[in-house]
Amino acid sequence: MASQGTKRSYEQMETDGERQNATEIRASVGKMIDGIGRFYIQMCTELKLSDYEGRLIQNSLTIERMVLSAFDERRNKYLEEHPSAGKDPKKTGGPIYKRVDRKWMRELVLYDKEEIRRIWRQANNGDDATAGLTHMMIWHSNLNDTTYQRTRALVRTGMDPRMCSLMQGSTLPRRSGAAGAAVKGVGTMVMELIRMIKRGINDRNFWRGENGRKTRSAYERMCNILKGKFQTAAQRAMMDQVRESRNPGNAEIEDLIFLARSALILRGSVAHKSCLPACVYGPAVASGYDFEKEGYSLVGIDPFKLLQNSQVYSLIRPNENPAHKSQLVWMACNSAAFEDLRVLSFIRGTKVSPRGKLSTRGVQIASNENMDAMESSTLELRSRYWAIRTRSGGNTNQQRASAGQISVQPAFSVQRNLPFDKPTIMAAFTGNTEGRTSDMRAEIIRMMEGAKPEEMSFQGRGVFELSDERAANPIVPSFDMSNEGSYFFGDNAEEYDN
């Protein structure tokens, strides 16, 4: 993207840094990872977990959730003011799984939030270390993106479920800051804005008074975040219109849905970061690795190297396929839920299948599930090659597409044709070009129609051997075009429920 120079890199967003050079960025990201790792080690000690239990991804998720809940100030305040039966607002906890007599047992633990905050700050040299908290939120978000298709949420806001490739980060909490905003897809931002506008339509006082002023500035800020994701002048001009509207209503909703559809071809720039579970960072720190000293990046080879040398386990339900569970977590670790499966298959070195073909449910185990038949197995999170994460949407291309997802959002900077089903997408653009945004709409449609099938995206960008740390010898991959490109292809993934 041309304006790259004016933006802070995501590592800076990730670490609240002012302008830093590459070495400083690597050190501050490393410091953040160190903090998460030290916190995780301490929690495993508190909970008396064995090494194996500490490497269980379900335990990692519970521990991450506990610290996120302990620092969720708004919710904590709300819980104190609106006490609900049987919930102690000062405590947080969740299921911890232990191996007892050759069987997995679930144990519900409860801790004072104050105590968890103390352990977290102690692991982070006394700081609140917001960057580390956001990092864990993005890992949870990436896992949700890989596990669930947001059909219901899309339909509720009037969008087409086939636009799911635009929904990265749709389950990120509001408090995820600049680093969170960077990884949100165009569809996620559109959905947040539509929800806001709908509230304004239904509630006369939404934009009024002292609160209304705050609401208005939040609305304009979200519009600017979305505008910054678009790469064409016409899309940005249309966002200006939406932002400046005196009284946002149905016309703005129409414009936003139009823009979301246009992003299936004229893709937005959305950041991709490899955020790993805390149970990967903990053992690495415990083994003596100093992330701050060595430096770390979320968008280069580092996460690949770390996963190459990590042992992570997962509980497996009786009829689940461990290899499929591994694929789910591998995609989440690489922030690749909406990437082209052919690119992923090449990088991973084994075939990556669409969601609907995987015999696996989510990673988390519900409290009512029976533990008797639970097994555990090693997650295979290694890769054959590594590639640089991208934040450009890439230019655009036609490809055989599917009944489910009709476009992709690249996660890796790797040369390819970008699949999208042009006739299906263009069919949504018939007729409606009147109104105050008509010239911009016409211009956007013209650009979409001009998108050429034979153009290559990320020209000359390749993948790298894991021994090639400096990215000196790019390998331009070859793809098996007979395979499906979309992950949520004609899909039956479970729906995400809060």
Rank of each mutant, 00 (worst) to 15 (best):
R348F: 04
A131Q: 12
S314W: 05
M191D: 07
V109Q: 11
I365L: 15
S478Q: 15
M448F: 00
K103W: 03
G356C: 06
Q42I: 03
I197T: 15
L259D: 03
R243K: 15
E53N: 06
M374V: 03
N211A: 14
D16H: 07
N370P: 13
Q327S: 07
L381T: 15
F304M: 14
M440E: 07
Q58S: 10
D372I: 07
Y78C: 07
K351G: 02
G209V: 11
W386E: 07
P283S: 12
S297T: 15
H135Q: 13
I25H: 01
W120Q: 09
S438L: 01
E380H: 09
M196L: 09
Y78T: 01
T15K: 01
Q122F: 14
R121E: 03
F230G: 01
S141A: 07
Q231L: 11
R208W: 05
D491C: 13
K77R: 15
P83D: 00
W120H: 09
R382L: 09
Q149I: 10
K77H: 14
S402G: 02
R150C: 07
D290G: 09
A472G: 06
D160R: 03
S402P: 03
I316L: 15
G460L: 14
Q405C: 13
Q12R: 15
Q231A: 08
D439K: 01
P322F: 09
N473A: 00
R208C: 06
R384C: 11
N125Q: 13
R121N: 13
N397Y: 00
G288F: 13
E380F: 04
P453Y: 01
G5A: 15
M32P: 07
Q168T: 10
L341N: 10
T188F: 03
G54T: 14
F488R: 00
S482M: 05
A251L: 14
D145W: 06
S3D: 00
G393F: 04
D88P: 03
N473V: 04
S392F: 07
R267H: 05
M13C: 11
W104L: 07
S274A: 04
R156L: 01
A131C: 07
M66K: 11
Y52C: 03
T437S: 15
A411I: 00
L266M: 09
L61G: 11
R389V: 01
I96C: 09
D497F: 12
E244A: 09
G300D: 06
M456E: 00
L61D: 15
T437L: 04
R391C: 04
E254Y: 09
T147D: 05
W139N: 08
